[in-house]
Design a protein around this nucleic acid. Structure first.
Lengths: 152, 152
DNA sequence: ACATTTTAATCGTATCACGATATATACCTG
DNA sequence: CAGGTATATATCGTGATACGATTAAAATGT
């Protein structure tokens, strides 16, 4: 049916973005303080946090970061040059390039993950609350409580 | 106490970023399809969704977007040049520049907000779930279930 | 009246993402 | 097995964005 958004809808959406930005801004600052650019931290975490059994290829990381594969290549170049990850092939498919986190990468990622764990303990609840408001905003907001509406 | 993160911790953090990226990627695509750059959409939404009684100044928007004020100036320049927002002063404090959304801005923001509302209905629950896992990961994970621990 | 603070704007630079394109390997089809 | 197609990675050029450093103008405090 698609009613136009109310003022409260805009506020809920804006508040969600505000909460997300606060978390991401914390993350960006933490990464830079540690000596990593934000997206490089993201790739490192994506690599280390890959589900069991998933091959750590460039393409897989691109999907996890929701970027084009060539953007993942560029991030990998910067990370490899600075010694946080290593490229290797596993001999099966020689097109495929797999990535591993170096000792140096492990160390910096561990620090950052501890920071994030602590931050999420504080910020997480507000984020969840803002999200919930947008989700319930989406739902049941038909004008009439009668049986009518709900035409998809 | 600060135990090192477990594999499950890394996975939870990575999964959260994946869910956030999926939402943001959707948002970026939707904005570009509509003809706006992602951050320009963010500023527009932040402006329209400002809480009651908050003055829509450049500085306020910068805070809401968690960027430096001069970055907000630049975004505003681009948005104003393309006719989505207007600058105005209110005569009280002549340093302050206030912003308003033009008709054109309203229209595009309305479309985008409908898209986002629909997307959040679908994606919201997974995001909440991922967040919850990171928040509870942060909490109670001491090794001994005895009375000891909990020293802070 | 002068120093300080606040708000916005400008300039130069770096990261990052993208589209277009290239290259190498794998696969498929006849 | 030759040739075409698909897949995985890499390269190049460009544009948006963010930042730090600096400037400008108005407000505030002493």
């Amino acid at each position: 049916m698609e009613r136009p958004p109310t003022a409260a809808d805009y506020q809920a959406l804006a508040e969600l973005r505000y909460q997300i930005r606060k978390f991401l801004h914390f993350s960006e600052q933490a990464a830079r303080r540690a000596g990593l650019e934000p997206r490089q931290h993201q790739l490192l975490l994506g690599l280390k946090g890959l589900p069991e059994g998933v091959r750590p290829s460039i393409g897989e990381l691109a999907e996890r970061l929701q970027i084009q594969h060539h953007s993942a290549v560029e991030l990998t170049n910067r990370l490899a040059k600075r010694g946080y990850v290593r490229r290797y092939g596993d001999g099966q498919d020689r097109r495929e390039v797999l990535l591993s986190v170096t000792r140096k990468g492990e160390k910096i990622l561990r620090e950052l993950s501890l920071d994030h764990r602590a931050e999420l303990r504080v910020q997480g609840p507000a984020l969840i609350a803002a999200l919930r408001r947008t989700v319930s905003m989406s739902r049941n907001r038909r004008s009439s409580p009668s049986q009518a509406g709900a035409k998809s």
